[in-house]
Simulated assay, not measured.
Amino acid sequence: MRIKAIGVFTVLVLGLMATPAQASAWPGDSAIRTADGSNVFGKNLSGLSFESANTLWAVKNSPATLYRLTPSGSAWQIAQSRALSFADGQGDPDAEGVVSTPDGLFVVSERDNDDEDVSAPTVLKYGTQSTAEQQWALPGMPETDPNEGPEGIAWVPDTFLTAQSFKDDTGKLYNPADYANHGSGLVAVGLEATGEIYLYALQSTAKLIAKFASGQKQVMELEFDGTRLWATCDDHCGGRATTFTISGGKFKLTNTYDRPSKLPNLNLEGFAISPSCINGKRTAIWSDDDNTDKHALRSGTLDCPA
């Protein structure tokens, strides 16, 4: 969610951040179009994730709402929506990010909107109902302003991690069998306040596996495209994106990209990449938390991996 006031913690963190790396041009077309109808979502649309080329999930952070979107011409329309609650059936999760995975649908929340002065970093798993099927408190994060907590979430499959000889923060080679009942991958969570990325195995509790810097002063969204992990920022960072691959067992920054030249510098809190490659291009979609000009979704293209 957009920072309405800069607290002492934020000032200290931003003052310690390194100067951002020189950015390259967006690796796709510069053209951008609106991808929703007029005033369909209003404000607070925060997270996006493709389930397939024809199914896009989105979450609103207040009031907590989950949307399943399907294409209609050049736009995305609401096929289904539902309000969200925590696993006890209560509260209003500040749902900032969503990711569709083979293990289910996961939402990251930074607090309960009904108790907005208390930080509560949480991942929630949803089935077909409004009430979360499971939820996990996220350990290992620093104390932050309640409105500067986890903003983005992505899922990285175990098959990718093991093929790339990923190591945890102790230097131990990652072995999925060491984390019983965690599913088939790790969830990556981006922390707005520091720009750090945290990798968790979701067992009966969330186990922190690794953390690393995103290369940006803030993180608003995470996305794994099959070969790279993306971390994106909003207008506080000029809409830039950083990408990571695994090298020497660790996630290492590979590129920093400017937003597409025709994409305005908006409060872009959501970002998703279509799994489908057509004529060398993949669809990229951003969500604008401010619903600028009565549109919350904007679409462009990204070059397919070589």
Rank of each mutant, 00 (worst) to 15 (best):
E51C: 11
E148F: 10
L229R: 13
L199F: 08
P121A: 13
P102D: 04
S52I: 02
A75F: 07
K60Y: 02
T55S: 15
T159S: 15
G97L: 06
V98Y: 04
N267L: 06
S24N: 12
C304R: 10
L124D: 04
V59E: 01
T254Q: 15
N291S: 11
S130L: 01
T159I: 11
D290M: 15
T159G: 07
D88V: 07
S100F: 12
S287I: 09
L138Y: 09
C237Y: 02
G226I: 11
K4M: 13
K4T: 06
L56R: 05
K211E: 01
A201T: 06
V219H: 09
S72T: 02
E143C: 02
L66V: 00
I6F: 06
R298A: 09
A231M: 06
S130F: 02
A201S: 14
M1A: 11
K125P: 03
M1K: 10
K294L: 15
L199G: 09
L222D: 00
F251K: 06
A163G: 05
N61K: 00
W136E: 12
H295L: 10
T254S: 15
E192Y: 13
A58N: 08
A272C: 03
G215D: 08
S204G: 00
A201R: 12
K217M: 09
D114W: 05
A154E: 01
A31N: 05
G248Q: 09
Q134A: 15
V123F: 03
Y179Q: 05
E51D: 04
K252D: 01
G7N: 13
G270K: 08
K172N: 13
N291E: 10
A23E: 12
M220E: 14
R240S: 12
E223T: 03
E143K: 10
I78S: 07
K250Y: 00
S85G: 02
N181F: 03
A87F: 03
V108F: 06
L16A: 15
L84Q: 05
A296V: 08
H182G: 02
N291T: 01
L45S: 12
S109L: 12
L66C: 07
S52G: 09
G185L: 04
N265W: 08
A231R: 00
T159V: 14
M17P: 01
K4S: 14
S247P: 01
S52R: 05
S261L: 11
G270M: 07
P275D: 08
P93K: 07
G238K: 04
R240C: 10
F271D: 04
D88M: 05
T254L: 09
L56W: 06
D234Y: 05
P176I: 00
V189E: 00
A64Q: 04
P102C: 11
R282F: 00
A213G: 09
R33A: 15
D169A: 13
P20I: 10
T128I: 10
D88W: 12
Q135E: 14
L297C: 01
N279D: 14
P71G: 08
D88Y: 10
N39R: 14
S247R: 12
F212Q: 07
L266A: 10
K211N: 13
W155L: 11
G238A: 06
P20R: 00
D178V: 04
L186H: 01
M141Y: 09
D92W: 01
S184A: 05
Q80C: 00
